[in-house]
């Protein structure tokens, strides 16, 4: 693809951080697993365990 636009700085232009993040499938995979694991599953299981016994 010769029409590929490399941008004003050619191939030297720095790729912004967010674009680098979005271009990293494995990093996104890790985030996409860890975040709900902690916020949803671990938190939920901890609350379940913490339910007190009836007197």
């Amino acid at each position: 693809m010769s029409d590929f636009d490399t941008g004003p700085g050619g191939t030297d232009e720095k790729i912004p951080f967010m674009q680098q993040l979005l271009d990293s499938p494995l990093l996104l995979l890790v985030i996409g697993i860890v975040s709900p694991m902690v916020l949803y599953i671990v938190w939920g299981v901890m609350e379940t365990i913490a339910i007190p016994l009836a007197q």
Binding site: D3, F4, D5, T6, G7, T11, E13, I15, P16, M18, Q19, L22
Partner: peptide, 8 residues
């Protein structure tokens, strides 16, 4: 995407 840097 047709640009190398599309974020900007």
């Amino acid at each position: 995407p047709p640009q190398r840097v599309w974020w900007n």
